[in-house]
Design a protein around this nucleic acid. Structure first.
Lengths: 206, 206, 206, 206
DNA sequence: CATGAATGAGATTTCATTCAT
DNA sequence: GATGAATGAAATCTCATTCAT
């Protein structure tokens, strides 16, 4: 293992420990000592690999955002047509939250930095941009092959992601309000109905 | 001015100052001294009126959540039929965020307490419950008078609020992605199209 | 009731409340607010009747020390001869502690002020002086009528009080070490044996 | 110097500084800053070695109680027979207070925690238990070899310690009441007279 | 006399960061 | 690279005391 490998592995180890700490103690309630304990390293070494706590947090955000995105993209690829891809996108996106509740919450914790930390704000902004890009590519594909109505790509992508975020949020605060399975279906239906070409729906009426 | 008035006025004054501080310094970066300075009172008096920082924050959340809710409800009442009411609900809800960016962000800052503070979690949960209730009453009205399709009320209400929250969120991170006016229209259209009774849409094609 | 009566009664009420607070929260853990609550008066009025917290505490000490002394003296008077008086003195003195555990502890709390507060030190010193005086008068009576050996009065009085204090102390820390009844007897025996005239003990052998 | 040495030395240094502070400012009037200043370290390091102020105080009590005990035990060992040992025990015990007035007062300051801090109460209780044990062993020796009367060991040990504590106490409040030398003699005489076997005293009269 | 709102000093405690080893 | 002792700034919270009403 090269020196570079050791370094990046150590960094990953510390970042992972930080995720655990945020989840356990809260975004503003964990100390560098907590991270050191969780990672099984000394407090000093964290400052060797990371400039300061802010720098460490930025690395955490990078990892968390990237992980969530990867999970969705990899699953989406398996589908064969735009309609299925979009359904996958919604389903996986919502299930990621359900299955990684804590992880998603850590991601959410960074939202409070919106006003104070422009770096973090930018990272989150880019993350959403990528996310919208993924969705809009699926939409573009469907528009091209005629299975979707010709909507404004970025606009509709924004709305798709909005529903997913919003539903996750409400569920995190109270998971007894709706059935997760059913709300996924309802979301899919609404999103797809908004994409159905007129003639297609009209085709139903002779 | 009676003593009771002094007390409630002073409390309101401190809560207001806290909102400003959260907005200015960040949810986790403001001190009791900051609040005291902003309110023009001594540090001690804050602890005289509020048990501790957590207690103060809970009062802030109460106020912020209530204010947002009131704004939406009062505007919605002006509309005359369910369809218009729903459009108002969406429009006002989204505009509240745009016009009170900082205020809405303060509200959002509380989301991070989801894991750590069960009290706050409960307050937010109740706030969303009320919010869904407002939306579902509008839906019920429309279903009753036949202008809306017979949807699952709480489920559809959840989705309406989800889009609004999600759109606000993306906009807060990057307001250059979409036109706020246009996205409001798109949201309204999607939500309403999901409520249009089948025969009504069919009636469009002779 | 005259103004003076009202004042002294109010003072007594506050002092009594303070005793309760010291007993409940500890000598250094009670606040003026605690006293106000316990006395059912406002915080302000305490400062009307007492210069400050120290002044209030001095009044508390006066009362506590005096009460303990009074209890012992009044009981002692009932006995008819020096020997019985001394037995009473010891018995009552030790029982006062047992029956007024908390009260005696409040008295003890003042001992820590020995280095810092010369006023309090002086009050305690005077209290012990009076206490020794009471004991030495009993001794003097017995020496005079020949029932006691001719001991140094203040010295022996000091030792009598010392045993009583020391026994109380050990009992307060662990009341399972000795039987209170038996230790009272043993103390009496030792003290009295030290006072028995030689010829009296010699008289046992003809 | 190893790290372990540094740690235990630093702890000892801080405990010693605390003893000085308690003696100088009073049990309830010294701050962590005072201790830091006295020890010549930063405030932070005290909390690195001790959990909190209470924990530090417990360490102080441990040291003070232990030191007093050690002083007495080591001196007592030098005597050759039970009678001399007991005289030593009393003499050294009383002189420890006189020669380490401040130190003994610090020990006494902990007595006020009897109601509030069960930990400290237990430590003091154990300290007295050990102390009684030491005295009762000397008594047992004397009873065995016939130089002492057959008394209840723990009971008589309690009384011996009681006189010593009580005398110290009165002297701390007013050192002009009796001559320390003479009171030591009187105490010894009383304690020993209570232990003299009957036949021995009878042997004095032919 | 009586109240309790208001002050502000000061106490404990936490913790990011540094640096000698 | 790695450790953990040490620092010191800053934060929360308490509370005796004052004073307008």
């Amino acid at each position: 293992m090269t020196k570079l490998d050791v370094a990046s592995e150590r960094k990953a180890q510390i970042v992972q420990a930080t995720v655990e700490c945020i989840s356990k103690y809260g975004y503003n309630n964990f100390s560098m000592q907590d991270v050191a304990n969780a990672a099984g390293v000394s407090k000093g070494i964290i400052h060797y690999y990371f400039l300061n706590k802010d720098d460490l947090l930025k690395s955490v955000l990078d990892k968390v955002a990237e992980d969530i995105e990867k999970a969705i993209v990899s699953e989406t690829k398996k589908a064969k047509n735009p309609r299925e891809k979009l359904e996958m996108f919604i389903e996986v996106g919502l299930n990621v939250v359900r299955k990684n509740k804590e992880y998603y919450q850590v991601n959410m914790d960074f939202w409070t930095q919106i006003n104070q930390n422009t770096d973090i704000r930018a990272v989150i902004g880019r993350h959403y941009a990528k996310f919208r890009e993924t969705a809009s590519q699926i939409l573009a594909e469907g528009v091209k092959d005629g299975s979707f109505k010709d909507v404004n790509l970025i606009g509709y992508a924004s709305i798709i992601i909005a529903v997913m975020d919003g539903i996750s949020l409400q569920w995190l605060f109270d998971d007894s309000v709706f059935s997760y399975e059913k709300i996924i279906e309802k979301t899919k239906n609404l999103i797809l109905s908004g994409l159905t070409p007129h003639n297609v729906s009209a085709s139903g009426s002779p």
